[in-house]
Design a protein around this nucleic acid. Structure first.
Length: 223
DNA sequence: TACCAGGTCCTCG
DNA sequence: CGAGGACATGGT
């Protein structure tokens, strides 16, 4: 089946997914159906944190970790102690980071990954520094991949969901779906390039498509 | 009780 | 390179 047709089938079956889920301070929950590309820097950073926390981990557990982080006193600032969202500073200043993210599993490794990523964010200011137009696609990906703890799926999730780049994210569900369709490759990038070559280079489309594949994967595994 | 979850890194041959 | 293991919690 054509890649576009698969998308239409999934969309018809599961409906729009509205990724990436963002923590909402009023309900204290991670809410889906974010409208479009995230504008706030703290949302972009939070998406990246979530991408690291969800490595080989159910999103439900990641939500608990994010809730702990967002409810941390360090997340509040100003005279009224307003919620400011996640920042690299919060990660780097938390004395009990391991404890806060404990529900997401692998908490020692992930705390280290978050610290390294936060240091990088502070130093390179990915949301602020003006870069050549093409830099985001290629240079930023390479830069992310060079960080310890960030592999291809995590980097691509960040590029697509936080930085709005037309990069197709491949995960275990995607490979499983491909197998069902009789398509198999060796390398991660072969899967990615396969999808990217079959679709218009539209971040919104890639966003929904990957989210739909995850919806499909979850539905499969609960059968 | 086992197995899996929106992976990545390290080691060893 | 490429297979195999470590990392860790919570849900079914």
């Amino acid at each position: 089946m054509e890649v576009q047709k698969v998308y239409k089938c999934l969309l018809a079956k599961f409906g729009p997914q509205g990724w990436w889920p963002i923590f909402d301070i009023t309900t204290k929950k991670c809410k889906y159906r974010t409208i479009g590309f995230p504008k706030a820097d703290s949302h972009k950073f939070e998406i990246c944190v979530g991408a690291i926390l969800t490595q080989n981990t159910a999103w439900k557990n990641v939500e608990k970790a994010l809730t702990n982080l967002c409810n941390s006193p360090l997340c509040k600032r100003g005279a009224r102690g307003d919620f400011q969202g996640l920042t690299p500073k919060l990660i780097l200043n938390s004395k009990n980071l391991e404890q806060l993210i404990q529900p997401a599993g692998y908490y020692n490794q992930k705390a280290k990954k978050l610290r390294i990523f936060s240091e990088w964010w502070q130093k390179s200011n990915p949301t602020k520094i003006k870069r050549p137009l093409n830099f985001c696609r290629i240079g930023l990906r390479e830069e992310l991949l060079s960080l310890w703890g960030i592999g291809p799926e995590t980097a691509d999730s960040m590029l697509l969901y936080a930085f709005n780049q037309p990069i197709f994210v491949i995960d275990t569900y995607t490979k499983r779906l491909c197998k069902e369709l009789g398509i198999e490759f060796r390398e991660y990038d072969e899967y990615r390039e396969f999808f990217e070559s079959q679709l218009p280079q539209d971040p919104k489309l890639f966003n929904e498509y990957h989210a739909l594949i995850v919806a499909w994967g979850k539905a499969q595994s609960s059968k």
